[in-house]
Amino acid sequence: MLLREVEYAKPTSVAQALAILSENDGARALAGGQTMINVMKARAASPDALVDLAALEGLKGIELAGDGTLSIGPMTTYTDLVVSAEAKARPILGEVCAQIADVQVRNRGTIGGNLCSNDPTNHLPPLMVSIGAQMTIAGQGGERVVTADEFFLGVYLTAVGPGELLTKITIPAGKRDAFAAVTLGVDGTCIASAAASVNGSLRIALGCVDATPVLLQPASADEGAVREAVRAAGIDPPADVHASSEYRMHLVEVLAVRAARQASERN
């Protein structure tokens, strides 16, 4: 399909990318393009300029610190996360990335693009909330760090403002995590999802039921406690062709129980 005419820049430093983004109101970052290009085809958004992040080496790669903390560049692809030895320090990362779409999408799609697009059906936003990830956001004025709980603001909306970039995702050490979802076919789009993590206390993040992941912190992973927490959360899930609001509510309760159980059984 012919896209609307667009300008293109491929900066070689983060500073240069930030300068271009802040000087051009209609400029948008281009990561793996697996959402952006479809959005442009559908004319859902028609940026005036694309700032290709592909040459920014500082935004790639996975580092494992001595205390088990992972620092992940936003331009790291799902495939990178699936095969990386370092990323195995937090096994759930590769496990969930291996369930996203298909080989081709996994080869191009990036963790940063997944988080910044914040599609409520995406796999990674609830996962990041459950495992307590932190996001580093850079602008021309400097850097700030926000927690995953504060990062997702609305449908397709995050704490990354105009002229800013997500530059790093920091993930604490931990292994007792799980992700449960009902999807459209194997490895398909989520109809409802729940990510759970037991790292000290239990954190469950529900996906597809609100504009942003819904964080629950039940006192225990017992089925009764988890069901109670989901019901008390005051969620009113959206309805679409795949599920009514009631059915989605039912699914997410079952998925929360399943994810909490799987996470607490892991060691």
């Binding site: 399909m1 293109y8 491929k10 281009l30 393009g33 697996q34 290009i37 479809n38 694309l50 290709d52 592909a54 495939t79 080989v103 081709q104 999408v105 080869n107 191009r108």
Partner: peptide
Amino acid sequence: GTLVKSCMMLAVQ
């Protein structure tokens, strides 16, 4: 060396 869908990539990329 990487399998991609060429309708999901710009030629300039």
